[in-house]
Write a protein that binds this DNA or RNA. Structure first.
Length: 384
DNA sequence: AAGTTCTGCAACCGCTGTCCT
DNA sequence: CAGGACAGCGGTTGCAGAACT
């Protein structure tokens, strides 16, 4: 036999608390102490749910709360703890006396996350937008108002579009439009060198098939899907190649298997099997077992696991000896070899880490792996 | 100045683990 | 032990007011 329900929610007031209600609650708790939230509203004469009373007290009425004006030191604390704990707002709040989890959560969502996005813009990078085929032809026309929250959300979810609808070529040929919206966040050299569609240099393969089969899976003749992509090699040579996205739906992995991969079971937390988002869903990168694994780039297999191990680099072209980057979308240009001697600046590394961490939507386990120097630099920048 | 759109944040919702009966 | 409330948490929503054209 359990307890009586907390409240039946019938006839209870919702919404903003009035100053009168606050006063009643404060006086009651001062006289009787915290706790017994279920009986509190009745005893205090409030037409509120006990849960609501608790929330109001903890977040706004307690005398030890600071409320507003979060200092740079506090901001730094939030960033640091968030980088290691993710959205554990209550834990973060426990390191900030006088601050509540709700306040920190709101502050993060409305201030700090935006700082990171604005950095990407300020550093000459253009944030990619999700290509939504249903809207691609009708760019929204602004009538007035401020920066779109929707747009921020889109930016935020760009790399994490799990349920993005598959875009069929016949429905929405992307090639003509993609350049307008898919300028990736890359250093200057890359922006000059790579064409607009380099998003698809993410490698694509099915871990379940052998190399020959995989090649046939990836290669497509559908012109609408092809992406011309220029690559710059360390030698200075430029090459144009065609990258063809892999559509798991059309190409052989059934939805059930694919969803399993996406949802978790087949994802290796150590990164031997990784997903990157591509147009129409996820691409799968398998770093596992060498022989059946590798990287498909353009129209050929460019590296196997053995290449990776031997080279210590991300990948190389076994045929020509040229180095390829076969990285994810988010780090689509972060292969040091292909980029010659060019070195990413620290901010890019930071932001790349942030993007890859899926930090905007979920846990940030990757962020915790950022080395301390990078981490500190990131914090310094965010506070600058 | 009016109309439109977005921001900031307080409050709610729903879930989970723990405790109570 | 089972069932249910409690406490706490993170995600989401709603709205007043700000920002913008």
């Amino acid at each position: 036999m359990g307890r009586a329900p907390c409240c039946d929610k019938v006839g209870l007031k919702k919404g903003r608390w009035t100053s009168e209600e606050d006063e009643i609650l404060i006086k009651y708790i001062q006289a009787n102490g915290e706790g017994s939230w279920r009986s509190l509203p009745k005893n205090a004469g409030l037409l509120r749910c006990g849960k609501s009373c608790r929330l109001r007290w903890i977040n706004y009425l307690r005398s030890d709360l600071k409320r507003g004006n979060i200092s740079s030191e506090e901001e730094e604390t939030i960033i640091k703890w968030h980088s290691s704990m993710g959205n554990r707002w209550s834990l973060i709040a426990s390191h900030l006396p006088g601050r509540t989890d709700n306040e920190i959560k709101n502050y993060w969502n409305s201030h700090l996350s935006r700082k990171i996005h604005s950095f990407r813009r300020s550093s000459g990078e253009t944030l990619p937008m999700v290509m939504d085929s249903t809207k691609a032809d009708i760019p929204p026309k602004r009538k007035g108002g401020r920066t779109s929250r929707w747009a921020m959300k889109k930016n935020k979810t760009y790399y994490i579009q799990k349920d993005v609808p598959k875009i069929k070529p016949k429905d929405s040929p992307l090639t003509p439009n993609i350049e307008e919206v898919l300028l990736l966040p890359t250093p200057d050299l890359e922006q000059e060198t790579f064409s607009s569609t380099t998003i698809y240099d993410s490698m694509v393969l099915d871990p379940k098939v052998n190399d020959n089969e995989r090649e046939s899976l990836v290669l497509r003749s559908d012109e609408a899907w092809k992406c011309e992509n220029q690559r710059l090699y360390a030698s200075g040579e430029k090459k144009t190649e065609t990258l063809v996205p892999y559509d798991h739906d059309q190409e052989g992995i059934d939805d059930g298997v694919f969803n399993d991969i996406v949802d978790n079971d087949l994802l290796d937390p150590d990164g031997v099997l990784a997903l990157t988002e591509g147009r129409g869903g996820y691409d799968i990168i398998d770093f596992n077992d060498g022989k059946d694994s590798g990287f498909m780039c353009a129209d050929k297999m460019v590296a196997t696991h053995e290449h990776l191990q031997e080279s210590g680099q991300f990948s190389s072209n076994g045929d020509s000896g040229e180095w390829y980057s076969c990285s994810s979308i988010t780090s689509g240009f972060d292969d040091g070899v292909e980029r010659g001697n060019e070195i990413w600046d620290e901010k890019e590394k930071m932001l790349s880490s942030l993007w890859e961490s899926d930090n905007w939507e979920g846990d940030s386990y990757n962020l915790s792996e950022i080395d301390s120097d990078t981490h500190d630099a990131m914090v310094a920048w965010l506070l600058s």
